[in-house]
Design a protein around this nucleic acid. Structure first.
Length: 233
DNA sequence: CACCAGGCAAGTA
DNA sequence: TACTTGCATGGT
């Protein structure tokens, strides 16, 4: 890591992260993520929820289940146009149909369709493999690593940026990897903890960050008033 | 009516 | 390398 880029945030400490986790867990309770029945369903959901409300993803997954397409076999053989039609409620349906196909084809071709063999790969190899698939970026890959393969990898999303930014815990221009390293560097590498923590952050974002009035009820306000345009010292 | 959601890749300068 | 734009439905 070369260098000079300031990778530490003065206000973001292990202590502060543990406080945040406790506040959110006490407020919302356990989230029991990922909301899916199988590992493949987690992976499909991870692609479908890209920049998309989860309620829309549920409709799309429901359609796939009704048509018995929620399998490597089904997803890799159904005509692309039909797949797109089935996942229509999730938005971006044409591009997401291709992304799902790219993902299942990767497993079919590289692992002979053996999903368990794929998920048993070493974490680093698994991540690189996922990122090599067109349509799988850092967040989607890490969601699959954490919630399908149960690896201690922290998932960063827009809510993570927004919430930590609002509370002056990071620089606004901080990138995905920097935020991820913060959580992973200051917390025990426990996939159960990371699972719950990310889910709680999303729940907080959905509940309190959508509209300004709701913001006043966020449990994190215990840290003090929000400072929207905080910048590095 | 406008706005946005648990991103990502491709295009432009 | 650093911005910008396209992708699209359904809920508030």
């Amino acid at each position: 890591m070369e260098d000079s880029w300031e990778t530490d945030f003065p206000s973001l400490t292990a202590q502060r992260l543990r406080e945040m986790y406790t506040l959110l867990l006490d407020h919302f309770g356990p989230q029991n993520w990922w909301p899916a029945e199988t590992e493949l369903e987690v992976m499909v959901g991870a692609v479908l929820t890209q920049n998309t409300n989860w309620s829309n993803v549920e409709k799309a997954i429901s359609n796939l289940k009704k048509r018995n397409l929620l399998s490597l076999e089904g997803l890799s053989t159904v005509p692309l146009v039909e797949l797109a039609g089935d996942i229509r409620p999730a938005g971006y349906f044409n591009i997401k149909a291709k992304r799902l196909r790219n993902l299942v084809n990767f497993i079919v071709e590289r692992y002979e369709g053996d999903l368990s063999a794929f998920l048993d790969e070493e974490t680093q190899a698994l991540r690189e493999g996922l990122l090599s698939v067109k349509g799988i970026g850092p967040e989607t890959a890490d969601s699959i690593l954490l919630y399908a393969a149960r690896r201690p990898v922290f998932v960063v999303d827009t809510y993570t940026h927004r919430i930590l930014g609002l509370h002056g815990m990071i620089y606004e221009e901080a990138g995905y990897h920097e935020l991820q390293q913060f959580f992973m560097g200051h917390l025990p590498e426990d996939h159960v903890l990371f699972n719950e923590f990310h889910a709680l952050i999303v729940q907080t974002g959905k509940t309190y960050c959508r509209k300004k009035p709701l913001c006043s009820r966020c449990p994190l306000l215990e840290w003090g008033p929000i400072t929207p345009n905080w910048t590095a010292s």
